[in-house]
Design a protein around this nucleic acid. Structure first.
Lengths: 234, 234
DNA sequence: ACATTATTTCTTGTATACAATAATATTGAC
DNA sequence: GTCAATATTATTGTATACAAGAAATAATGT
């Protein structure tokens, strides 16, 4: 019986508080378009929807406001706040800079083992490209970048990279849909790895920056995918 | 009389909600050492101290937990969480990278007017050095960097820089106490400005990175100033 | 009829009450 | 006397109640 008790205890410890669960659910509802940009989020309605009181809903909203996904005006309430085209470009630019920094630092700090990991991740990426499996490519691509962040040897930088990556996730997806973009992306990955192997920090930084940066036709593509977001302006 | 009414209205609008005020006050109490690292922050005690109920205190604590200044464990409460020496070094490294990025972008985007602003800020810095007024230097130095962030032309990057700068503020202060550091810092500022004037993005980035990075004797000095933080380990 | 003001309603911000869990103290057995 | 199990206390998480401000609507005067 003590065993059952421990199991129960385990589940209890795993259980996060309701406000956290609700924050994630609201986030999900924003990402999949249930709540549109600029929409007012009523605390009472959300409380009813999740069958809780206003308190955890409110805490969730305040948390999301901190992360920038919603705007919380005093005495006015919470509003969905998707980044506009300009802010999005800016975020991609910062992401590119952070990736460049991570690569630059990694060039001097990366272990041979990690180089191996990157190559393996790249192989899995390649396999996904062969299979034309965009979804799989997307996951493996994330793995590749996660390793790079880690090998910067700076866990604070790693966290910042992951945070921003998470914000840009829904938009990055659209970028990869471009014809031939997957193969180009692969070549860039290989360029990064070889720069890291050579310990060439400048090359590693430039290759990483170029890989993430939104430029050329990608720019137009991204703008096109933002038509929905632009609606609110009109 | 309508005038008086408008004034009242103005003040009402300026008034932020209590939880925000409390968050800032708690932050202050942590920075000035009233609450030590690792200390448990009791919601009830804080509520009594500020003469409010637990609700706004709780919201403040959750906000501070998001910003990383305190740790909030489920069903355990809030604990002060000052960065340890390693994390601090990592944060300075990221700050250096962000500054470098801002400078690199600014090199291509900065206006002549802004160059003038930087030079003026530098002159005020110089005056502070002459007067041996560390406090004044500190403020003017912040101004200089704020202009640089702005001229990156990327307001998202600007915000990120200001956020991190704010976190590192109490530690940066100790760095400036080093003998002769002020004059060296001034030379570095001038180097940055001249690189920006030349539109030399590489030089601007390197100069900025070097200016912020903690290296050489500064490293030992920073570690020494962390003795208090290290106490908790012992 | 329109604009302005007063009132009402609705929503947020804060206080308090209750529930659930972790920390602490107490008691009993060895 | 010490350790373990249980009872107590204290603190957090959530629900509800109340207060205050903003939006919406009704009323009034021009």
């Amino acid at each position: 019986m003590y065993c059952a008790r421990r199991v129960e205890c385990y589940f209890v410890r795993m259980e996060q508080k309701r406000s956290d669960v609700i924050a994630n659910q609201i986030e999900e509802l924003i990402f999949d378009g249930t709540f549109r940009d600029g929409e007012h989020l009523d605390e009472m309605q959300l409380a009813d929807r999740f069958s809780v009181s206003r308190t955890p809903v409110r805490e969730a909203l305040l948390r999301l406001a901190q992360s920038g996904l919603i705007e919380h005006l005093p005495r006015r309430g919470a509003f969905v706040r998707q980044p506009g085209p300009i802010e999005l470009m800016e975020m991609f630019e910062v992401m590119a800079e952070l990736e460049a920094s991570a690569a630059r630092l990694a060039a001097n700090r990366i272990s041979d083992h990690a180089i191996g990991e990157l190559k393996e991740a790249n192989q899995r990426c390649n396999a996904a490209v062969e299979e034309q499996n965009t979804e799989k490519y997307y996951g493996e691509n994330e793995q590749f970048h996660a390793i790079l962040y880690r090998e910067s040897g700076n866990s604070f930088l790693e966290k910042e990279c992951l945070r921003l990556q998470r914000c840009l996730q829904p938009f990055r997806r659209t970028q990869l849909r471009l014809r031939g973009r997957l193969k180009q992306s692969m070549r860039e990955h290989e360029l990064i790895v070889s720069a890291l192997e050579d310990g060439d920090e400048i090359q590693a930084a430039n290759a990483s920056r170029g890989h993430v940066a939104v430029q050329g036709e990608n720019f137009h593509h991204l703008m096109a995918s933002l038509k929905t977001a632009l609606k609110r302006v009109g």
